[in-house]
């Protein structure tokens, strides 16, 4: 519990830091809104032109887009330490200072940054979700609400886990490697569409390696009443847990890698 308290207090201080520059904050939030609005526009244009993609019609597509956008940007907002700052901390030796504190490294990295500008992206995602669930006539039963919450929650840890790949790589080679972005940002761009619209290799990639399909598409398709892969409904309760598995595995690799941490500079 103490860790959670530390996290919340750190967030408080970081927000205070950000609010020292209110104009810059507002402009950047606006920029994010335009960026994510553009992403949504792509879906709107697609729907306008084709009106359905395989068995998915407009409402379904908005729903998938919204789910990805809310999950991904919640992670970028609250997990900014891992999704954004870590390579920089390794390169500049800022990580040394964290190592001299009696707390876990990942805890402290999580506590080191927050990105409230993402609020505009989350807002776009929410709009898309509401629009999608209206159009697809989703029934918000307690079960569906719970399943949705589980998907977002597990998605948070999945995205964090994928960002840890870059963290692990940059411990070993100090200079960060962009290869991990293919799975994180690439995964976000691809998996805002349901996974079964892709060819088999991509489907495998986003089911087995970066299981966005298991964490988001399986439960979302059940909520929409069109189970993907022909899986039974109860599978949707289990498959999102793969997000935790990815995160746990990456934490394991991360702590192994920290033994090889070489620090930087004097």
């Amino acid at each position: 519990m103490n860790t959670l308290k530390l996290y919340l207090r750190s967030m408080g201080i970081l927000l205070k830091c950000q609010m020292q520059y209110p104009l810059s904050f507002m402009l950047q939030t606006l920029a994010q809104l335009i960026m994510e609005g553009g992403e949504m526009l792509a879906v709107i244009l697609l729907v306008d032109r084709f009106d359905h993609l395989n068995q998915w019609n407009a409402g379904d597509l908005y729903f998938f887009f919204g789910l990805m956008s809310v999950t991904f940007y919640l992670t970028e907002c609250f997990g900014r330490g891992i999704t954004g700052n870590f390579p920089y901390m390794v390169r500049t030796g800022q990580l040394d200072l964290l190592l001299t504190h009696p707390r876990g490294i990942l805890t402290q990295v999580m506590c080191s940054a927050v990105d409230p500008r993402r609020i505009s992206c989350i807002a776009v995602g929410t709009v898309s979700l509401v629009l999608g669930s209206r159009m697809a006539e989703v029934r918000w039963s307690p079960q569906n609400i719970l399943l949705f919450a589980e998907s977002v929650f597990c998605g948070f840890w999945l995205v964090l886990g994928l960002f840890l790949i870059e963290a692990v790589l940059c411990i070993h080679s100090v200079k960060s490697v962009e290869i991990a972005n293919a799975l994180t940002y690439g995964g976000r761009s691809a998996c805002q569409y349901p996974v079964d619209v892709f060819p088999r290799p991509l489907r495998m990639l986003f089911t087995v390696i970066a299981p966005f399909a298991l964490v988001m598409h399986v439960p979302a398709s059940v909520i929409l009443g069109k189970p993907v892969f022909g899986w039974p409904a109860w599978a949707a309760w289990i498959s999102p847990l793969s997000g935790f598995a990815v995160f746990g595995f990456m934490v394991f690799l991360f702590s192994r890698s920290m033994r090889f941490y070489r620090s930087a500079g004097s």
Binding site: L6, R9, I13, K16, C17, Q20, T100
Partner: peptide, 28 residues
């Protein structure tokens, strides 16, 4: 305790008293 002459552990944009109270939490 460790002090690196070229690296700062305190937060840049808030009064140092805030930083200290966070260190208090970190070190319990």
């Amino acid at each position: 305790g460790v002090v690196f002459g070229q690296r700062m552990q305190l937060w840049w944009d808030v009064p140092i008293l805030d930083s200290y109270s966070l260190l208090k939490d970190i070190y319990r």
